[in-house]
Every structure is written in structure tokens, then in C-alpha cells.
Design a binder for these strands. Structure first.
Lengths: 146, 146
DNA sequence: TTTAAGTTGAAATCCGTTTTCATTTGGGCG
DNA sequence: CGCCCAAATGAAAACGGATTTCAACTTAAA
């Protein structure tokens, strides 16, 4: 999903919900799209603060929730106790490789794994709505150092 | 891992770390093993409280951490913000199916998925230490109701 | 026993998240 | 344009689970 597309989708969402388009929301969305994925609320807040010191943490938090509601962002939890948000591709699901050493996060996608998930779930009578797959280990850089 | 085996492993662990075997720790471990898996600290605490009102939440919390440290339990997070613990099988890894409707948790294991995970990680230069795979959806019971 | 070190439970603290509330702002309407 | 009201904002407070503190109490080794 492109940057312009996300912005339009957000505007439509605000309109449809009777919510208002504000300067803060625009700034936050822009920074969110610019910043690359997997940011925590805190990280995004700090980035914004540099250029726009009057923006409050609560507004960043609330905006991220709105982004998630309208489908341009997704909330993730990688076990460090913080919620992280990533811009969503929407038609393209993906999973994550996380380096336990340097924290690098790589996205991947494998239809074979997805297919097996559906199969296994079926064997237990489940129909899957969504899933979470995270692989934790060492990336190439960190493996070579040790 | 059998119940007796876990108890012995815990005792060995305590000894090896210069920690003490106490009545509370025994009670908590017994109730933990009896209770079936995926309990939160809170849930285990409530169960214990019925028979042993003098046991404190902090002690339950600390004991569960010890169980995890010595390898007889594993901590899990299923996205409801609470840590849950399960007795660990240790040589047998498994993943989870979670019913979003009734909260039922089913364990499963699929070597084909595991193999693909290793393969995909390798393509990105990662070596996997551990992973998390959770499938969220509706179980057979809940699907048939709706 | 005596004693030093570890443990306990209640309460306090931590820390990310979420809410409150007084004030400000957006934008529809005359 | 200005008015007005609902929505939004930001600072601070509240929240909730996890963790720590600390004085009193156990454990187990000598």
C-alpha cells in the first residue's frame, strides 16, 4: 500500500466515522509512514517530538490505534513487552524473523507454511482467522561476529 | 515429563543454585502440575488460595519464574497481556491453536512446518533458536454454534 | 541450638498503556 | 466570515500486570 493510498484511506475512514482531520493526525501519519515499520509508540513519539515538540504522547497513541482500526497499520507484539506497529500491506500477509542479538526484524512469507497451517488446523476442527509466526535466532551479521 | 520427574528436577535445581526447598514451593509446584497447562499467575494463585490462603501472589510469581528457569515450565504470551505458563515436555516442541470465541487452547506439532521454518530462515541468513506459532480461529464447537 | 542466608507476604514500585478532564480546534451552518 | 458544538488535544492521573522492597520468618548447615 503506497503512502498516498494510506493517507487517502485514513481520510476516508475519518470522514466515515464522523472524526476530524487534524494537523496532528497528519503529522503523525506522515512520520509513521516515513519511519519504516515495527516502531513502538514511544519511538514514534520521540521522532515526532524533535520536529513538533507540542505533540503529546497520548495523541500518538490514539492515532496509532486509529491507523490500526482503519487498516493502514497493524499492531504487533514481539515479546519485549511493547506494542509495535507496522504499515500494512493488506493483501500480503507476512511473518517475522527476529534477531535476538541485534533486534533486527526481517519480514518473510511462505505459502507452503500457510497451507500447512490450514491443514493442521482442519485436522483439529479449527478454522483459522489469523495467525502469528515468529522465528527468533541470529541473523547473518550477528552469527559471524560470535 | 512426568510429575515425579519434574519435582526431582526442581529439587536438583534448587540444590544446585543454593536455594531452599520450602513448603510453599512444593505446594505451588504440585498445584501447577495438577492444574493443566496455560495458567496465568493469577489463575494459579486463585486455585492455591482456596486450600492455602496464606500463600502470597508474589511467591506464586517467583516460583513460576523458578520453574521456567529450571526447565520444567515455559512462559507464553497469547496476546491478552498476561503471561501464561505451561509444563514443558522439553524434547517435544509444540505450537498452539487458540479459539478466539471460547478461549480453548489446543497443542499441536508438525515437523513439516518446522522444517520449512528452518529452510526459510536459512534463506535469510538466520539460524533459528526458537519460534512461536499460534493459529487463532474458531474451534469445532464454536463454529457449529454460530 | 545457633546462626547466616534464603524465603515469605503485604505493600510499594515499576512501566507501558489507557483514560480523564479542562482547554483548544475543526468544520458545518447561518 | 463568525458561532457553536462535537471532537481532539496534552498533561497528568489512573490502570493493570509484573516485579521489587523490606521486616519478619524459615531453612538447613555447623
Amino acid at each position: 500500500m503506497g503512502s498516498t493510498e494510506s493517507k487517502n484511506k485514513f481520510k476516508d475512514f475519518l470522514l466515515s466515522q464522523g472524526l476530524k482531520s487534524t494537523n496532528q493526525r497528519e503529522l503523525i501519519l506522515e512520520e509513521f509512514l516515513r519511519a519504516g515499520s515495527h516502531l513502538s509508540t514511544e519511538e514514534l513519539y520521540i521522532r515526532l517530538r524533535k520536529k513538533h515538540p507540542r505533540i503529546g504522547y497520548a495523541t500518538v497513541h490514539r492515532s496509532l490505534k486509529l491507523f490500526a482500526q482503519c487498516g493502514i497499520a497493524e499492531q504487533r507484539h514481539f515479546g519485549d513487552g511493547q506494542a509495535r506497529y507496522e504499515a500494512s500491506d493488506h493483501d500480503e500477509h507476512h511473518d517475522h524473523l527476529i534477531c535476538v542479538s541485534c533486534g533486527k526484524i526481517v519480514e518473510f512469507e511462505d505459502p507452503r507454511i500457510e497451507a500447512l497451517q490450514v491443514e493442521v488446523a482442519g485436522e483439529h476442527g479449527f478454522s483459522i482467522e489469523r495467525h502469528r509466526l515468529e522465528l527468533y535466532g541470529s541473523c547473518a551479521d550477528c552469527s559471524s561476529i560470535t
